[in-house]
């Protein structure tokens, strides 16, 4: 009986019609009131990182995928050649500087397209942006290298560690040289110089790999030492490149 009464009372109640303009006005007032509170939205590092992935040029993903496909074809074809070992060593040696090379336009794009000035004045400035791009690109490179190492060590009787070293040492060296060039030269010229240096490096390492015995003559200990040394140089270059982004006058000036 009581429930029915309540139900009837509720059914009798009609929500007054409120114009949309008043609703919008209230929402607007609430938004402005919220903005005045000074509560800031702080993005987590994960949010920033994931947010930037979609702004990496699609051409980079396509080129890396195509490169990986070509490398895999070469590695698989090597099996049928009369000197499979030499063929594999040559393929991975030539591929290493190229894997590092294809990411250069992405790293240099802020300067190539003259967007660095605007990016530098954002909350997450150019230094943070480049660091995030390096993390994404580095992860992509490591993914490609891991596939190469796994395929090579699975299909050929080569040690996982040795193959990793044969790829990572030239990769680190090439990356260090590219970063040095990017740090010293800004604009499209840097990309062109990196491209030229990269091609010569790939050819040089490729020629060296023809004498594949060299790779086995050098002990794993020496390869490991070379890997540690090249990693230290790469880290040094990475730090210096990021630091150099704070030196505005070295980036550009419009002296007539």
């Amino acid at each position: 009986m009581k429930d029915k009464k309540v139900k009837n009372t509720l059914e009798k109640y009609r929500v007054p019609q409120i114009p949309n303009s008043l609703i919008d006005n209230t929402v607007g007032l609430a938004k402005r009131a919220f903005e005045r509170t000074g509560i800031k939205y702080e993005m987590s590092f994960r949010e920033i990182l994931v947010g930037q992935i979609k702004y990496i040029s699609p051409s980079l993903w396509v080129i890396q995928a195509a490169l990986l496909f070509i490398i895999l074809v070469f590695l698989l074809v090597s099996n049928s050649t009369h000197n499979a070992y030499q063929s594999v060593i040559t393929t991975i040696s030539v591929a290493s500087p190229i894997i590092a090379l294809v990411v250069i336009p992405e790293l240099a794009k802020s300067f190539n397209h003259h967007v660095w000035e605007m990016e530098s004045t954002c909350k997450f400035d150019l230094q943070k942006l480049l660091a995030i791009r390096l993390i994404i690109i580095g992860a992509l490179d490591m993914f490609v290298i891991t596939i190469m190492v796994v395929i090579t060590s699975t299909f050929y009787e080569l040690s996982f560690i040795n193959i990793s070293l044969y790829i990572l040492v030239p990769f680190n060296m090439a990356s260090s040289i590219y970063l040095y060039i990017l740090r010293r030269i800004r604009g499209k010229a840097a990309t062109i110089i990196c491209l030229t240096v990269g091609i010569f490096m790939a050819l040089g390492v490729g020629l060296l790999a023809v004498y594949s015995e060299l790779y086995t003559l050098i002990s794993t200990f020496i390869w490991m030492t070379m890997f540690i040394f090249s990693t230290v140089v790469l880290v040094y270059e990475l730090i210096h490149m990021l630091k150099s982004l704070q030196e505005g006058e070295k980036l550009e000036w419009n002296l007539p």
Binding site: K109, H113, V115, E117, M118, C122, K123, D125
Partner: peptide, 15 residues
């Protein structure tokens, strides 16, 4: 930088 807005003389963009 959070309260700064800037338009440089040479406006660059990713084409």
């Amino acid at each position: 930088r959070d309260i700064l807005g800037y338009l440089p003389q040479h406006f660059g963009y990713y084409p």
